[in-house]
């Protein structure tokens, strides 16, 4: 598959998983996204994006039933694939290069 561009929300989701230690299921992910962006995040949007990223090969998932006896729920944990790490690294590099020297300009606005 070609190097399809990462959407903004896809980008945010990948970063949030990374912040949560590289592996997370959707509930803490939503909370993390909300905490960091200050906006309400729709669970179903996150669900859809997670599926899409998995299809793109940027995430891998596993079912975890270790907490089933407590909560009755099976959780699906998502983990960044090496491909995702490369994509994030590349995009960070691009962004940093572009931001170089202009951050203060925005502060003056």
């Amino acid at each position: 598959m070609g190097r399809e561009r990462l959407g903004e929300f896809e980008h945010q989701v990948l970063l949030a998983i990374l912040r949560l230690g590289g592996e997370a299921y959707s509930v803490p992910l939503v909370l993390e996204l909300e905490e960091r962006t200050g906006r309400e995040v729709s669970q179903s949007s996150v669900f859809i994006v997670l599926q899409r990223l998995e299809k793109k090969g940027l995430l891998a998932s596993r079912m975890d039933d270790s907490t089933k006896h407590e909560t009755g729920r099976v959780r699906r944990y998502f983990e960044l694939t090496p491909e995702a790490m490369i994509r994030l690294r590349d995009s960070r590099r691009d962004f940093v290069a572009l931001w170089d020297g202009i951050a203060t300009v925005l502060d003056e606005v």
Partner: peptide
């Protein structure tokens, strides 16, 4: 299959 999972996650988030 997906719906059940999603509804469960929404319910968990509701508790939070």
């Amino acid at each position: 299959k997906h719906l059940e999972q999603l509804l469960a996650e929404i319910a968990e988030l509701y508790e939070h």
